[in-house]
Every structure is written in C-alpha cells, then in structure tokens.
Write a protein that binds this DNA or RNA. Sequence first.
DNA 1: TCCAATCGGTCAATCGATTAACTAAGTCCG
DNA 2: CGGACTTAGTTAATCGATTGACCGATTGGA
Lengths: 339, 339
Amino acid sequence: MVTRPPRLTDVAKAAGVSTATASMALNGTGGNRIGSETRDRVLAAAAALGYRPNTVARGLRTRRTQMIGFVGDNVATTPFAGQMIRGAHDAAREAGFLLLMIDTTGDPEETGEAIAALQERQIDGILLATMYHQAIDVPKEIKSTPVVLLDCSADGTVSSVVPDERGGTLGVLAELAAAGHRRIGHVTTAEDVEARHIRLAAWREHVTAYGLDAGDLLAESPEARTHDGYEAAMRLLGRPERPTAIFCFNDRMAMGVYRAAAERGLSIPGDLSVVSYDDQELIAPELAPGLTSAALPHYEMGSWAVKELLRRLDEPDAEPVQHLMPCPTARRQSVAAPR
Amino acid sequence: MVTRPPRLTDVAKAAGVSTATASMALNGTGGNRIGSETRDRVLAAAAALGYRPNTVARGLRTRRTQMIGFVGDNVATTPFAGQMIRGAHDAAREAGFLLLMIDTTGDPEETGEAIAALQERQIDGILLATMYHQAIDVPKEIKSTPVVLLDCSADGTVSSVVPDERGGTLGVLAELAAAGHRRIGHVTTAEDVEARHIRLAAWREHVTAYGLDAGDLLAESPEARTHDGYEAAMRLLGRPERPTAIFCFNDRMAMGVYRAAAERGLSIPGDLSVVSYDDQELIAPELAPGLTSAALPHYEMGSWAVKELLRRLDEPDAEPVQHLMPCPTARRQSVAAPR
DNA sequence: TCCAATCGGTCAATCGATTAACTAAGTCCG
DNA sequence: CGGACTTAGTTAATCGATTGACCGATTGGA
C-alpha cells in the first residue's frame, strides 16, 4: 500500500482542529491565539503522523523558499575554494536554508542563464562567487533579487566580501622581518588579477621602506603554476646579490621555488626562507619543510556572505557593506633567521 | 515602480486566450489541441513580457521540482572529489535539473536529517555520495524517493556506481610490467576502507603470479598521508632486496615515497619507478617527475549517477544497476625500465 | 439529413500550505 | 445591564501554475 505523506489537513483532522489552527500551532504564529492545550494536541498529532510540511506549497504562499542560489565560476568543482561553499553551506543550514548550486565557466551569458534558472525557482537570494579575488560587473539579470558577492567586488551598490590581501601580505612579510630578513624577493605571476596587484603593491611598500630597489628583488612568470614559480626563482636566485627570503604569490609557485632552491643547493629555511599566500591544504602543510603562508579565509567569507544575505532579506534597505576578511598567517617551518 | 514578474495570466491576457491554452502552448502539451497560429501568439506574448514560469507553483501542481538532492560526506567541500559534483551538476543541468546540496560529516543521524530536509523540499531524487569508495547502509528515511549511490554501494536494492579499483590497479601495474618490472612493492594504509582492500588484493594477485612473496614487498602505515607514505617507503627501501618499483595506495602517499627515494639517494624513475592511484590534480602532475597514476573517474561517476537517477524517475520499476566505472591510467614520467 | 468524431479551445478543480477577516463565547467594568 | 475587549478558534481567499472535464462549431460517413 502506497501511503502518501501526511498533509496539514491530516494533522488538523487528527487533532480535531482546522488547518488554520494547525498551521499556527506548528509555526508558532498568530501570537497567543492558540491555547497551549490545543497546541500540544496539534504538535502531538504532527509527531505521531510524522508530518513534514511541504515547503513547495508553503513557498508558493509565502514567496519564501528558504533556498539560496550559489553561482560560482568553477568554484564548486575545483579543489581551491571549496571551503567557501562549506562556509556558506553551514551558515545557511544553521538558519534553515539550503544552497541551490550552479557552477559556470565564468562566461557572462552563462552566468545570466544561471541566475535566471535560479530566479525561476524563486530562491530568496543569490551568492555570486568567483574563484579568485577580482572585480566584476553585477549581471543585470539580478534586479530585485538580493545578492552578495563572494571573493569579488563591484560598484558598491551590493554587499561583498573579499580577502584582505594587503593585510595578509604584510602579515607574512612581518614574519620574515621579525626573523631578521631585509632582502625579501617576490616571485609572482603576470596575470592581471586583483590578488597579484595588491600583494605586489604591499610587498613593494615593505621592501622600499628599507630603501631597497624592488626591481632587483622581483621575478615574474606568465602564469602562477609550479613551473612558473620554479623558473622565476631560478632567475631570482641567479642574481649577484640574492635575496635571503622569498615571498611567493601563491603556494603553487612556492612549490616551484622549493624545487629551484634544492637545485641551487640552498636549504630551506637555513639558506633561504620562504613564505607564500593561499595556505592550500594539499600543499602548504605537505611540503618539507612546512610552508608558512597567509591563509585565504574561504570558509569565513562564505559564512559571512550568507549572514549578510540573510540580513538583507530582513532589511532590504540596509546599506551595502564591503567587507575585508583578514588573512591570518599559518606559521610553519619555512622561516628562519638569515645566515 | 515595482513591477512584479509576469504570470501566466498576464501572458494569456496579452495573447487573448485562457491560461489553460497559454499553459499548453508554452509547454507543448495537450497534443494538437492548440492551433499553430494561437501557439505563435502565445509564444510571442510570453517573449514580449519576458515571462518565466514560477516553478514553485508548477512544482506544487505537478509534484516535480526538477531538483535533485545531493547528499555527501564532506564531498562538496574537500578538494578531493569535487569533480563528482561537477559531473552530477553538468548532467543535471543538461536535463533541466538543479542540484540542492547538503554536506554532512558522515554521521548517520545527520545524513537522515539532510535527507528529510531535502524531501521537505520535494526534490525528485537523491544522490548519496561518499568521499571514498565504501559500503554503506541506505538510510531508511529514503523510502519512496528514488536514490542512486555515488562512490559507495549497498545491498543491491538501489543503483550505485563505484570506481573499478581492480581494473585501475591492474592498469598501472601493467604499465610497470611493460617496462620490465617484476619486484613491485606496495605502500598502503592500514585503514579499513574498500579501496585499500581491492587495490591490495589486485596487487597481491599480480606479484604472486610471478611467484614472488607479497609479504616481502608490502609496507603499511596507519593512515594514508604523505608522512605515512614516507615512513612505509623508508622501511621498504631499507630491506635487503629492494623493489625496483613501488605501487602506492594513493598520490599523497606517493609524495612521501618520492621524498624517501630522494633521501635514500634513489632517482625516479632511473633507480625506482613509482605508480599510484587517484590522479589528484594538485599532486600527480605537479610532482617532479610527473606521477603515473590510475585516475578516479569522479566526473564520470557523477554524471552517470544523475543519468541513472533520471532514468529511474521515468521507469521506477527498472532493475537497479551496480556500475563499475573504469579508472584510466594517467601516464607521466615516473616509470622507466629497471636498472 | 442526422449522428458521431474531430478540432480548438475554455472552465474550474487542484496541488498544500498561509493568513486576513470573521465569529462566538466569555470577561470586565462603569 | 450593556458595550468593549479578549480569547480561541474557523472560514475562505490566495499563491501561480497544470489538467481533467466539458463545449460549440465543423466535418465526414452512412
């Protein structure tokens, strides 16, 4: 016998009340219109029947689906920023929301379609996430739907959260400075991304404060892969007056720097200290010696974004907030005093 | 002026027909009851108004939400199996479905709650995924909801897809055999997971076929992290008659094996060939030399699972299928002929 | 010529909740 | 005693689509 799941009507009938009463009793709405004895009867009936509200029906009536759309460019599916989803997921679930996820290639048209698909499903709000910190245009498809940007920022008309790249950079550089380093090199990518610019600028500021020529200490490669890091480091370590420490654009490049150091016969951290950015879980702690790295607070950003979104659902007219999330330094063994 | 999105009524009015007609025209339902001229008028009106159906209302009526629940234990949020989601996501989207994701810690009670939360939302089916290939009990909460297991298997009453670990193992071992290796060691974990058992058994079968004693060639560590691989390899390479090649339980352990080889003064692949399992994108291609590894077909499994689920939505009485997905060998530079 | 089938639609019930408007009974107080 | 409140509910409209039942006008066959 196929029994369909119980409806509110069934609960109401079992408790001997109207569906209106049952609804109010279960949801605690309607102020004090429901007697406590009646409420108990309804609750008991619901429990006995194993009643679970049909949120589709509820959503139709209330225009709230308790679902948040998560649109990301390769965020969900690449190893890098998964913690962003985890953070969003946890914060959402805590508030009784679920994440409806769409991953895109980053193509604006595709993003637009994704947003439309989510809006058809009447999601309550949208999280727009990118894989790397960057500036974007908010798609015009989002008109009335509340939105929060994750790891990207726009024109200031919507809330957003991005990592505090400058703070993170100064953090790991301070680590080196505290160990006594002055000649700190930088190995970076030539790609035109926000992260590169900010990290580079913060590093430049730091070294020029010591009166050093940043040009002597900078090495750049076309991309940010292991091999690019290797190449840049080989060049940097081949210069007449080599740096005593290197700050890498990210952990992947740092892996290449480790390789280059080994090839040049330099031990880390004895001959060369290395710090980096991203604190990727599959790299930074796994390298030997463990890599000191500024952590991208993916989890915290995801969580913050959901909370901000929920806040805006309650107060649609609140001022948009541009949030900078701190990047704490993950200390490991790749830093020591220079020889 | 806040204009609410157009409803079917608006389209019908604009086209001068009833909502019934408009609905049928837009959905192509009702056979040939709609004249082609009328249909065009409706379509034009819908396009002009920018009409998008409210899928919540539709879902209430049709009992189909075009959403699939994805329940995973840390799957979504760890770097490892993200491609599983990607595969499921793409296959779902192609069929007009979206993924409603819940990540759990693997705790059965939590999983039960996750399933209930999804069922409340009237998802059409559920994908139950685990991070590593393992046997599970299908939660009893899933009664009437169609379900497909991803990277895990159960009692055969539901469809499932898991990697063909045996085939994958034999694949990389064949690679070594073709290069001329006989004494092939195995570095593995002591954890009680399906993957360990199958890979170990396939390896044992392979080496005993040469009349070798598997015990001489096996080294085990408590877990499967880099350091565990390092320790096991150090022991294995310290034995009197060391293997000419090592098959590692996974890429993480292989990283440790690389380190051990370097420490013992053995070059890869000159003195020692190494093959592994998982083909993790942040490890296998990034090591030097690139690591030959049996790839876990996460994407394909995710995609297969969704297709199977959709099939079962159409034919609920179809026989459940237990699918083995092949693990192709990713060839790199870590294999050469023995000295 | 007349009945039945076909064509091209419309009407109204329905999915399962929420909630504004209403009601009936009891209470309070001048 | 009577009007105003309070208490504890009920009735019925509503959200926006889908779809079974129905209907009037043609067409076709006997």
